[in-house]
Design a protein around this nucleic acid. Structure first.
Lengths: 111, 111
DNA sequence: TTGACATATTCCTATATAGGAATGTAATAT
DNA sequence: ATATTACATTCCTATATAGGAATATGTCAA
């Protein structure tokens, strides 16, 4: 079997860095596609394809406004990811101390 | 270009559902590979390969114990994902009301 | 050593990208 | 009608899986 489709869920959709940038950009307010292209310096076709993926999993919403289409992040769709990652929150403190021990015990790796 | 490697970062690594299950399973305490195989009902080779990916991005740590290898989730590596998704937290309330409006204004789609 | 146990890697294949180029489609203005 | 603007989709290709089977590696026991 190959990898699951990028459209299979929000986890797969946000794995792509450009899509994460787009989501951040569209979080504050809706924007036309052209603005995304200009601001993020991506090919128009790329942006459209990324938006298609994001739309398929409900991460963005669209509405038409004349010739333009205005996209906007649907924050609600990101919530499940925040909740899943939040399950590990209570382990962070303890983990930190272990990391520190290592950092102090072992010599640093050089680049 | 193809999709980025699963080992390119934590976002790509956790996109795979089985890897998320493994992370949850290894969060509480370290476990040998065999336990993961038995509990999650996966092929041994699959588990080893998933663990390899998780290890490459720092999501799990290993130590040998005799013949076994004990794996454990490194919660700290999940933190960046929690923080990224957290950027959208303040939009959740407002978004909810918009969703509600839609649900009430439009007739429901049938399956 | 030889064997058994535990885990890792390799070999194989079908599938799904992401990006760039080219083309298709929808909306508006003249 | 036609041109223009704004997006979306299709065509193309290199690449990276995930899973199952088989094999390799590593550790301990007798």
């Amino acid at each position: 079997m190959a990898r699951a489709a990028t459209t299979s869920d929000a986890f797969n959709a946000v794995a792509e860095p450009r899509r994460r940038e787009i989501l951040i950009y569209l979080a504050l307010r809706e924007r036309p596609v052209g603005d995304i292209v200009a601001t993020l310096r991506l090919e128009q076709s790329s942006v459209s394809k990324h938006l298609r993926v994001l739309r398929d999993v409900g991460l963005v919403e669209v509405r038409r406004d004349g010739r333009q289409k205005l996209y906007r992040t649907n924050a609600e769709a990101i919530r499940p990811l925040h909740e899943w990652t939040g399950k590990f929150e209570r382990f962070w403190q303890h983990q930190l101390s272990r990391i520190k021990e290592r950092a102090e015990g072992k010599p640093k790796e050089e680049a």
